[in-house]
Design a protein around this nucleic acid. Structure first.
Length: 909
RNA sequence: GCCCGCUUAGCUCAGUGGUAGAGCACACGCUUCACACGCGUGGGGUCGUAGGUUCAAGUCCUACAGCGGGCACCA
């Protein structure tokens, strides 16, 4: 058999995915057990224009580990993939292409043609992320892939809209919205970002009518004064009490505006007097409503000044107008001062253009009503369960408690067109279809609302719409809803988690998911958030190329919900781990003639050799730990347990302990049984590793002799698939095979070998040189039996020619002759003593120093323990078992000290 | 301003009131017939600071500091 010495991830990554997919291994239908419990996840749909970044890779790894794990446990498992249509991003991308290639705008080609172009673009380029997910090994059911603009999902959107409209939850009307002057559309509060920015605070003086007093207001946006319709002061502010109700003369414009009193004003801030621009500021808009102030729009949708701003300003950009206003105030002697000031500014989340708050007629959804049930559920039952609970449960709850109306309409062409029609007489008809609308209106002369809905409106329905809603008897909806868990990043809690819960509870009557797992944020190595603009992102595909997908997945699984700085070293260490797995398998396979997986562990476990009982015990403990860790979303614990089981227990010890049996030159039943045992343990280990490392495990599993249909989980045996580790049963921990005694006994063997190796190194014995004799003394008969039985392995692993096991070292009748003074010595944890005669090699002073060091360590430990035992309060108040444990430890340390003292004596102290 | 998280070895991070851990890095020695992406051995931490609770605190409580995040405000 030809097996390369180094694992090549590429080869394995290219070999299996297509087959898994083709044979339907990812679909829940592969499971033929009608009673199998369900496990389901819908992917938080990535943006169709997007490509894979580290955050996706992290989320996908977590989802895939969960999916593969529960699938191997026999659940009917669905992980549903798909993408959302990303209204603005996609539209902008296609517009840019159109401009570049044909020099046209979307208006030149018209709505219908433009939409067709977007679909074409989507077909051509939109598959990027789905291709990348295949590279990751994501075991999603591609046969159920969904897109938010699919006909079915679009029907769900219309149904959602119409029902909410009929219930009065959706309405159309004027409101203060975020307007992006570049993208030419309204945006919701979640699509804009606040950024702090260095700017200036301008102090402007407004003359009081019929007096020579002036009232000073402070503003960061002087150009908006052209639209001022009042100045507000605090009703408690005595400085201005006499001005309330008086009239000011708005400079430049000449408009007379009132001074009003309002609680909103903080007398401590600025001058305590606030200019009020109801048409261009959300707070002023609300204030204006309270005082019935006129709304004067001075800035238009292109962020240019309107005719209302006056002939001098009309057509000017808002920033040009700002300069001009300030200049005018200066000329008029009304500019009191300008100070540097840091304030926050709202920018379009997409194009970073500064948002212009505008009054505009849009469609809105009363979220607070939809949020009522989810809010009750989280408060009363802590559902869904957030992992980690802190701080996310509270973040979610706070959000639900403070909901406000959601601006739904977007002035775009790409998206779900609002199902509302107008008859030209000012009447609106909201309907599921145009035919319905006509029936309602009693006329065919209708025009559909030109706007589309926020993309997030369709994502909000994702868990139910992808499963078949609004067809309430859809089999998938009945089977897979509610979903088991939603895995996503924290900045998506408001956009997805809360809204999916709202729609799920409203339309399906149940929470959308049992659990919400929030992944950590991956920063660059300097702790900076990765971003395209900074160019500091690490491309997961590059990492895959360099270290392999499996290794990358291990890193990501370990990161889980922790914020982490990305570090290639970690991937490298897991790449090395993959290579270790490869080589362990290589060893097993190169020595597999005559053996098969599943053979070698016949008979009663108590008749097995110590190291066999030990590895089986370790295997079952590992299976227990890994299973428990995955189910508790403690992925780093699972990875840790797997890494150390495989590398330390299996490679460093089990293979080494088994080596002489496995590599025996002549064929024999014993040799083949030993070969079967390492193969069997390896096969079980590959199953344990599979959810984390799908490619290497499959690659190796396929090569093992003796695996086949029978290896599959019972639920999958009927499936017409090539036997695969992904459908094998995840090893169940059999408690009866967990053998604490064997573990303890083998620990002693390991310790003995380690102590002797330590002596070899510290006393500079050449690696190739054999120790002529090795003495072990212990009064414990059982332990003597263990050491004697493991004699071959101990001598081989310590490079000793012969071992003598006796009840006491200082005794002539130990069979190996007198133990010379020139021996290096050590004491094991169980009290056994070791002596290594090193005639002619040992440096007495060096060895004394070594033992003295060891004794000092023990002394410290002993003092600590004795001090604690001397404390009557400890003895009285601590649990008896803790006291007993400490006593035992102190006694043992005392024993060792004594033995070490004797050793020093023997060395001529 | 309010709320939350983090602070443990040089680096990245685990850690369940009861003997401080891993990987990487570091040092020394190894062409030991699965693996130098390896093997063996070793050094390295008053667990951010100050109090408190407790027989016992990295772990629980309080305050403070630094870093990060969310919300509110931002005229």
């Amino acid at each position: 058999m030809d097996i390369p010495k180094t694992y090549d991830p590429k080869q394995a990554e290219e070999s299996h995915y297509a087959r898994w997919e083709r044979e339907g291994c990812f679909a829940p239908e592969v499971n033929s057990d009608p009673a199998a419990p369900v496990y389901s996840i819908v992917i938080p749909p990535p943006n169709v224009t997007g490509s894979l970044h580290m955050g996706h890779a992290l989320q996908h790894t977590i989802m895939d580990v969960l999916t593969r794990y529960y699938r191997m446990r026999g659940r009917r498992t669905l992980w549903l993939p798909g993408t959302d249509h990303a209204g603005i991003s996609t539209q902008i991308m296609v517009e840019r292409q159109l401009k570049k290639e044909e020099g046209k705008t979307r208006h030149d080609i018209g709505r219908e043609e433009f939409t067709a172009r977007v679909w074409k673009w989507k077909e051509q380029y939109g598959g990027e992320i789905t291709r990348q997910m295949r590279r990751e090994g994501a075991s999603v059911d591609w046969s159920r892939e969904r897109f938010t603009m699919d006909e079915h999902l679009s029907r769900a959107v219309r149904e959602f809209f119409v029902r909410c409209y009929e219930e009065g939850l959706i309405y159309r009307g004027p409101g203060m919205i975020n307007w992006c002057p570049k993208d030419q559309t309204a945006l919701s509060d979640l699509e804009v970002d606040k950024e702090s920015q260095a700017g200036k605070l301008y102090y402007l003086q407004y003359p009081v009518k019929g007096s020579d007093r002036r009232l000073t207001v402070a503003t960061t946006r002087p150009e908006t004064m052209l639209g001022d319709t009042a100045v507000a002061v605090s009703p408690k502010d005595e400085r201005y009490a006499d001005l309330v109700g008086q009239t000011l003369l708005l400079p430049i414009v000449g408009r007379e505006i009132p001074v009003v009193a309002d609680e909103f004003v903080d007398p401590e801030f600025g001058t305590g007097a606030v200019k009020v621009t109801p048409a261009h500021d959300p707070a002023d808009y609300a204030l204006g409503k309270r005082h019935d102030l006129p709304q004067v729009t001075v800035i238009d949708q292109h962020a240019r000044m309107t005719s209302e701003a006056g002939a001098e300003f009309e057509g000017l950009d808002r920033y040009e107008a700002r300069e001009k206003v300030v200049q005018k105030f200066e000329e008029l002697g009304l500019l009191e001062k300008v100070v540097d000031y840091e304030f926050s500014i709202t920018k379009c989340g997409r194009c970073r253009t500064v948002i212009e708050p505008l009054i505009s007629t849009q469609w809105f959804l009363k979220q607070s009503e939809l949020g009522r049930e989810p809010l009750r559920l989280i408060r009363e039952q802590h559902e869904p369960r957030f992992v980690p609970e802190n701080p996310y449960e509270k973040v979610y709850e706070n959000w639900l408690a403070g909901l406000y109306d959601w601006t739904l309409s977007r002035q775009l062409w790409w998206g779900h067109r609002i199902p509302a029609w107008y008859d030209g007489k000012g009447n609106v008809y909201v309907a599921r279809t145009e035919a319905d609308a006509r029936a309602q209106a009693g006329t065919d002369e209708l025009e559909q609302d030109p706007d589309v809905l926020d993309t997030w409106f369709s994502s909000a329905l994702w868990p139910i719409s992808t499963l078949g809603w609004p067809d309430e008897d859809s089999p998938d909806l009945k089977t897979f809803y509610p979903t088991s868990v939603l895995v996503t990043a924290r900045d998506i809690i408001f956009l997805w988690v809360s809204r999916m819960m709202m729609t799920g509870m409203k339309f399906a009557g149940k929470k959308a998911f049992d659990d919400v797992y929030i992944t950590g944020t991956i920063f660059d190595k300097h702790g900076q958030r990765m971003s395209k603009t900074k160019g500091n992102g690490v491309d997961p595909l590059d990492v895959f190329d360099k270290y392999g997908v499996d290794a990358t997945r291990l890193v990501l699984a370990s990161i889980g919900s922790t914020d982490t700085r990305w570090n290639d070293n970690q991937v490298e260490s897991y790449r090395n781990f993959a290579n270790k797995i490869w080589n362990a398998a290589r060893f097993c396979l190169l020595n597999s003639e005559g053996a098969r997986v599943g053979h070698g562990f016949e008979g009663e476990p108590k008749t097995w050799a110590l190291h066999d009982r030990w590895i089986v015990s370790r295997l079952h403990k590992t299976a227990r730990e890994v299973g428990a860790a995955v189910e508790a979303y403690q992925f780093h614990e699972a990875v840790y347990a797997l890494y150390h089981f495989f590398w330390d227990d299996f490679c460093d010890w089990y293979i080494e302990l088994s080596k002489s049996d496995v590599t025996a030159a002549d064929a024999s039943p014993e040799r083949d049984a030993a070969r079967g045992r390492v193969l069997t343990v390896l096969e079980q280990a590959l199953r344990l590793l599979h959810p984390f490392m799908p490619f290497i495990t499959e690659e190796l599993w396929q090569r093992l002799p003796g695996v086949g249909k029978d290896s599959l989980h019972a639920a999958y045996r009927a499936a017409d698939v090539t036997p695969t580790v992904m459908l094998a049963e995840f090893p169940r921990a059999d408690e009866s095979l967990i053998d604490e005694q064997a573990e303890e006994e083998l620990r002693s063997v390991i310790e003995l070998v380690s102590r002797v190796r330590n002596i070899r190194t510290e006393l500079s014995v050449k690696p190739g040189e054999y120790l002529p004799r090795l003495f072990v003394g212990t009064p414990d008969r059982g332990m003597r039996y263990v050491f004697a039985n493991s004699a071959e392995q101990i001598t081989r692993l310590t490079r000793a020619s012969k071992i003598f096991v006796t009840d006491r070292l200082e005794k002539s009748s130990n069979g190996g002759g007198e133990i010379p003074r020139a021996s290096a010595r050590a004491v094991l944890a169980g009290g056994a003593e070791v002596a290594v005669p090193l005639e002619g090699l040992i440096d007495f002073a060096q060895e004394r120093a070594r033992i003295t060091r060891e004794r000092e360590k023990q002394e410290k430990e002993l003092q600590k323990a004795e001090a604690q035992l001397a404390n009557p309060q400890f003895v009285e108040r601590a649990p008896a078992e803790k006291v007993e444990e400490l006593r035992r430890r102190a006694a043992e340390v005392g024993q060792r000290m004594k033995a070490l003292g004797e050793m020093l004596e023997a060395l001529g102290e």
